[in-house]
Amino acid sequence: HAATELTPEQAAALKPYDRIVITGRFNAIGDAVSAVSRRADEEGAASFYVVDTSEFGNSGNWRVVADVYKA
């Protein structure tokens, strides 16, 4: 099962156990969220919340930071 994305309210009520950072070329924010979901799932997380997204220069590469939560 894939890790689910939390709302800001849900994330605020929970304590993350880790923070992950992924970088890559994403065509849309949805693609980045899917990549975070896969990584969170690999780490055994039940859910995640994207904290920050930023573009690296003009290369089209993105850096996505997310907190991950157990259950």
Rank of each mutant, 00 (worst) to 15 (best):
H1Q: 10
H1V: 08
K15G: 03
S37H: 08
V33D: 01
A45G: 05
A12L: 10
G24W: 04
N27C: 10
G57T: 07
T4A: 09
Y17L: 03
P16Q: 03
L14K: 09
A46E: 13
N58A: 13
D18Y: 10
A46H: 15
L6H: 02
R38K: 13
A2V: 12
Q10K: 06
F56S: 08
G24R: 01
D31H: 05
A11Q: 03
P16V: 03
I29R: 13
R63A: 06
A13I: 13
S59W: 06
S47Q: 08
V68K: 02
V65M: 05
A45Y: 15
A46P: 05
D67P: 00
S34R: 15
N58M: 11
D67Q: 06
T23C: 14
Y17D: 03
R38P: 00
A71N: 11
A28Q: 11
L6E: 01
R19A: 03
A28W: 10
P16L: 02
E43C: 14
A71G: 11
V33R: 08
G24Q: 02
V64F: 03
P8L: 13
V65S: 04
V51R: 05
V65Q: 02
I29S: 06
W62L: 06
K70F: 12
D18M: 15
R19G: 00
S34W: 09
F26L: 03
F48I: 01
F26M: 03
V50G: 01
A32W: 10
G57P: 08
E5S: 09
L6W: 02
I22H: 01
A13S: 13
E42R: 10
S37I: 10
G60S: 05
T4M: 13
V21Q: 05
A32T: 04
L14D: 04
Y49V: 09
P8R: 14
A32L: 12
A66G: 02
I20F: 05
R63H: 07
S54D: 07
A2Y: 14
R63Y: 10
S37A: 15
R38E: 06
E9T: 09
R39E: 04
W62E: 02
G60R: 05
S54L: 13
S54Y: 15
A71P: 11
V51A: 03
Y17C: 08
V21C: 12
R25H: 12
K15P: 04
R25T: 09
R38Y: 07
H1K: 09
I20K: 00
V51Y: 04
N58V: 11
V51D: 00
V65A: 04
R25I: 11
F56E: 13
A45P: 02
A45I: 04
S34D: 13
H1D: 06
D18H: 11
L14F: 08
I20D: 00
V51Q: 03
